[in-house]
Design a protein around this nucleic acid. Structure first.
Lengths: 123, 123
DNA sequence: CAGGATCCCACGCGATACTG
DNA sequence: CAGTATCGCGTGGGATCCTG
């Protein structure tokens, strides 16, 4: 019956809005590979290119969504650890399928783009 | 070995940039359900909320990516038909997995958000 | 060390109007 | 009917600086 997907409060739409952000799905992948806790700084090193602000914002969103758990060791300087919740871990499954598809087929998309571009001489 | 995912030219990154756009994954779903051709106007009716401009832009991108085929009947007024290519159809598989996850689990994310919000009294 | 506060820009997207 | 052209806005996200 899934005809009502993508209606106003469509769950798929909301999920896509999340995984479409630049860093969230990468964070899921890195945390899923770790299968345990990672410190903020370690997480950052494993996500090349992420700024400290965006990693912070991304993780806050994921904690709020219940995808990630956050644990603070009250020492100075602070040590903060993140790990996937069971919910977050379950999300890695469909995301892994997406990654596999990308690895197998994105080259075809690249080729299609090249063909398209060279077949359409400068407007 | 997949450690180089999300590097500069990461295929997963490029795929997410595409399916993260507002209408593309919906178009894949609608075209996959049809299992055949759909006219522009029919496609639009099956994608509630899409503007004619955004549908046009979305379809152009998908044609360029080789996900969708376009056929024009040279009559007046013009009749234009779209269908998924095999590549586009194959993309529907991981997207369907994502939709299933969303249907099953987005409610948990909603609950997590509600708890988070009410546990964090106005800053 | 972890992250908050600011500033700013690019761009995805919608609304509207026009055309072959 | 199926687009194309133009305008404007909201916001994702980067750079930089500051702090408990």
């Amino acid at each position: 019956m899934r005809g009502d997907l993508f209606s106003p409060e469509c769950p798929t739409r909301k999920l896509l809005d999340r995984i479409g952000t630049k860093w969230m799905s990468m964070a899921v992948k890195v945390l899923a590979e770790e299968a345990g806790e990672l410190r903020f700084s370690e997480l950052r090193r494993r996500m090349p290119g992420v700024s400290q602000k965006m990693l912070s914002v991304t993780l806050q969103g994921m904690v709020k969504d219940g995808l990630v758990g956050r644990r603070v060791e009250p020492v100075v300087p602070p040590r903060v650890f993140y790990r996937l919740t069971p919910l977050g871990l379950s999300l890695d499954e469909p995301l892994a399928a997406l990654r596999e598809w990308a690895e197998e087929h994105m080259v075809e998309i690249d080729h299609a783009n090249q063909r398209y571009t060279q077949d359409a001489p400068g407007v």
